[in-house]
Nucleic acid binder design. Structure first.
Lengths: 177, 177
DNA sequence: ACGTATAGTTGCTACATGCAACCAAATCGC
DNA sequence: GCGATTTGGTTGCATGTAGCAACTATACGT
């Protein structure tokens, strides 16, 4: 995208680096704290955070197979099985044998599951709305956009890193530690 | 910016709600994916994600007691002890008996610890810089600002929620579920 | 039809975490 | 000053989440 790499990789403006550092610190905090907030908030509805993510995926994308869900959530298939076990036991998700493939199961959120998810989300959305209310609509959009891109970038890095079987790819090969 | 406060608390504009929903979804994704990315990225330097947070706190705030660290990281004191155990074993953190209070320990990052933390962070900051490079400086600042506020709000909610011994405070009292 | 690949499940293990019990030092009340 | 209480940290124990590997059952290719 940027033809001149030097500006970006090599000697980015000090301002950019400073901004990036601030963003990084803020993000680290956000991610760390959100784990607690989510655990706290979600668990009292009797599901775990991961279970809530699964519910969300099923709510947003419709019925899917266990494998697909595992891919979306970046979880091992065994973990996914157990997440679904829990959700099924509680009546929020339904397993059906796939019509085309008897090995596969089709996962489907139940109406109870959907309403639980809606309940959980309503509060969260209200909170975000409160924070966004001050902002210029254009800034709001940027914020969401940047967060999406951060998530995408992180996912891309994670997936590629894992598939190559290495982590911190630029480091453990170059010995930067 | 928005003069009409009714729009915020009472009947927020549809646009705001939509933005909030988008932000919420993006955030959920971000937080979820970051757990993996961080685990992947940090673990190969032989420390866990939580250990890295601890290192960061000690790097940023200087020496402190175990208790203070636990407070910053929102961890139980026993968990904090174990996090420190690991970091000490690896030589990234040092325990000294506090001069004023023989019960307390003073935690201090070692130079090895600091350089490890710098190494880990350098890569992350570069990534963020890449994402920010496209953006108008003012937007950059807004993004970081919003993320900070999100983290703050989440922390406030978490802390108060826990201390009251309840979760989803606005819900289990009003029965919104 | 047989061998291989694929979808999910189960067994096992590792690890992070919190709570409760505990130990040691400090502080308070007398 | 000395016992009671409070406070800072550590340890024991139980739980929950996760991944890998082994397994089962079905589908698919030849």
């Amino acid at each position: 995208m940027q033809p001149n790499r030097n500006d970006r990789e090599h000697s980015p403006s000090q301002a950019l680096l400073t901004d990036a550092e601030a963003l990084n610190a803020a993000l680290a905090d956000l991610v760390r704290v959100y784990q607690f907030r989510d655990r706290d908030r979600i668990c009292c509805y009797d599901i775990s955070v991961t279970q809530c993510y699964a519910l969300e995926a099923l709510a947003d994308h419709g019925p899917m197979r266990s494998q697909t869900l595992a891919g979306l959530l970046l979880l091992d298939k065994s973990t996914t099985t157990r997440v679904i076990d829990a959700l099924e036991r509680k009546g929020y998700v339904e397993r059906r044998t796939d019509e085309d493939d008897a090995r596969a199961v089709s996962l489907r959120i139940t109406s109870n599951g959907r309403s639980l998810y809606d309940t959980i989300n309503r509060g969260l959305i209200a909170q975000q709305a409160e924070l966004l209310a001050d902002l210029d609509p254009q800034v709001r959009a940027s914020v969401t956009d940047v967060i999406r891109r951060l998530a995408k970038a992180a996912e891309a890095r994670f997936v590629s890193g894992v598939s190559v079987g290495t982590c911190a790819p630029s480091c453990d090969t170059t010995g930067c530690s």
